[in-house]
Simulated scan of single mutants.
Amino acid sequence: MIGKILNGRYHIIRQLGKGGFGETYLAEDQWLDRDNRCVVKRLKPDVINAVTLRLFETEAQVLTKLGSHDQIPQLLAHFQQDQEFYLVQEFIDGHDLTQEIRTNYQWSETEVIKLLEEILAILEFVHQQNPPVIHRDIKPANIMRRRKDGKIMLIDFGGVKRVKTEGGGSTLLTPVVGTQGYTPDEQWKNKAQLCSDIYAVGIMAIEALTGLQPRQHLRDSKTGQLLWRDRAEVD
């Protein structure tokens, strides 16, 4: 992929990441003169048919709506080439929170509250879409600190899916995704809800407060809840 030009304009510079949804690359939009950096995501579905095409278009529409928020990357383009699907998104100059939420480094309660307020304000926008959507993979690696103003950005919406409400409950319509440690039990059972994202945010807060990764905490044998309060100084 490196050096390839996609859709006659997006020059692939280097790979940024790889996951269950495909690969992510830093690219340059050759049609632009100024800062022309962008992020290209290559998706490789197992089967390409009318349903696949419809789902891809639907997801692009969802990402377009979400990108209207200042703290979510904008979707710049989407296209199909050589039996593969591509999303082109705004490049965010900054670093992800794995550089801030680190093992053996504890945040203060005040710092964590500030982070929570900012993350939850973005999630409120995501969850209030019509129909609502769930991010499903909130973790430090998917939250960036924008260099120009220090604001956080919620990224990597590869797992975001729309939900439909039936009888007051939200039912997920797509395959299971998530990251071990941050994903709640109901999501692994393909029953993710809006509150599943809130759980992941809570796990991030505990990680910042204690300086321990989720897998390093013991769990209550009866409730399954993390045992962490003796590792942090909180109200």
Results as ranks from 00 to 15, higher is better:
79 F>M: 10
119 I>Q: 01
12 I>W: 00
164 K>S: 13
138 I>G: 03
111 E>N: 09
124 E>T: 12
201 V>D: 02
160 V>Y: 04
143 I>L: 11
65 K>Y: 07
85 F>D: 01
52 T>I: 01
225 Q>A: 15
19 G>N: 12
5 I>T: 14
55 L>W: 06
167 G>F: 11
116 L>Y: 10
177 V>N: 08
35 D>V: 11
12 I>D: 00
96 D>W: 06
120 L>G: 09
221 S>C: 13
195 C>F: 11
61 Q>Y: 12
70 D>L: 14
120 L>A: 12
105 Y>K: 14
126 V>A: 08
47 V>G: 08
234 V>G: 05
30 Q>E: 12
17 G>R: 05
197 D>Q: 07
196 S>A: 13
64 T>M: 10
227 L>S: 13
190 N>M: 05
186 E>G: 07
12 I>Q: 01
36 N>Y: 01
11 H>K: 12
28 E>A: 14
204 M>Y: 06
113 I>G: 02
48 I>F: 03
135 H>K: 06
162 R>C: 08
40 V>W: 00
210 T>Y: 06
101 I>E: 00
66 L>H: 07
192 A>W: 03
65 K>D: 07
213 Q>R: 15
219 R>Q: 13
151 K>Q: 15
112 V>W: 02
102 R>L: 10
41 K>L: 03
35 D>C: 11
188 W>N: 07
48 I>C: 00
43 L>S: 03
18 K>Y: 08
7 N>V: 02
128 Q>M: 11
114 K>Q: 12
25 Y>P: 01
145 R>P: 03
20 G>A: 10
186 E>R: 08
178 G>F: 05
81 Q>M: 12
39 V>W: 00
82 D>M: 09
100 E>V: 10
19 G>S: 11
124 E>P: 01
158 G>D: 07
67 G>V: 04
165 T>A: 14
58 T>I: 09
127 H>E: 08
135 H>F: 09
